[in-house]
């Protein structure tokens, strides 16, 4: 459903991605692993339309979305769970979810999506009028995922959803990733926690210094020397 081809992305004059190519199939979890600074977030943000690539193509279901700005991408069916969560801190849990469903397509399914999110994360229902900024780290991550799901994506981009969370909460996050996939949402998962990411993925890419240096099935990458050296720390 997503084809990224030969993407070059710059921050001013500094190039952060060199010819990155990635595909995600329908209903698939694909992970991008790589060490800090490899360019993972840059790739995700370029797909979301937050960053504009200088070269290359991004195609979503046969539609060229390379130049599509962020606020149109979500209508096309892509949502993001950003690195560091980036909630709207001085708004309530409910308002954060509400804004997740801001686009016209998602708004039509608001009630249905809210029930889905509340089923996945019952704690968000209990805390609905609390300010997002006052939640615990784990709850904030759930809210960030919930907000992403409220957009009713066909493709969910998740940037380091387990970062800084307690192990129990990390397990919960990965369970949700599998649930979401089982309901037909494709997931592009960025993780430094490569072991867990590869466990839930069918395929994976290894990024290093802005280039895709390896791709294959999750098992292949988990066994490879490059991944073991550079990310798994074995």
């Amino acid at each position: 459903m997503l084809q990224v081809t030969d993407l070059d992305v710059f921050y001013g004059d500094a190039q952060a991605l060199w010819g990155a190519s990635v595909t995600v199939g329908s209903g698939e979890v694909v992970s991008i692993v790589g060490s800090n600074g490899a360019g993972k977030s840059t790739l995700v943000n370029a797909i979301m339309g937050i960053l504009r690539p200088r070269r290359g193509r991004i195609v979503l279901d046969d539609q060229d979305v390379t130049e599509t700005p962020g606020h149109r991408m979500c209508r096309a069916g892509v949502a993001i769970v950003p690195e560091g969560r980036r909630l709207f801190p001085s708004m309530s849990v409910e308002d954060n979810l509400d804004l997740g469903a801001f686009n016209r397509v998602a708004r039509a399914h608001y009630e249905e999506s809210l029930q889905w999110v509340h089923t996945l994360f019952p704690r968000l229902a209990d805390r609905r009028s609390q300010l997002a900024g006052s939640l615990s780290g784990g709850e904030q991550q759930m809210l960030a995922i919930g907000r992403g799901l409220m957009a009713r994506p066909r493709l969910l981009l998740m940037d380091e959803p387990s970062l800084g969370l307690a192990p129990v909460v990390v397990d919960e996050v990965f369970d949700v990733i599998e649930t979401v996939r089982d309901e037909g949402v494709s997931v592009l998962l960025v993780e430094q926690n490569a072991q867990m990411a590869l466990d839930v993925s069918s395929r994976a890419y290894l990024l290093a210094e802005g280039r895709v240096v390896m791709d294959g099935t999750a098992e292949e990458l988990a066994k490879s020397r490059e991944v073991r050296d550079s990310v798994l720390g074995l």
Partner: peptide, 24 residues
Amino acid sequence: TYAGRALQAFGQDREIASAFGIDH
């Protein structure tokens, strides 16, 4: 209002507000 909350979101995090369809 919806527009008001969108503006608040935009004031708090422009990029992410855009990513959720808010036409800034």
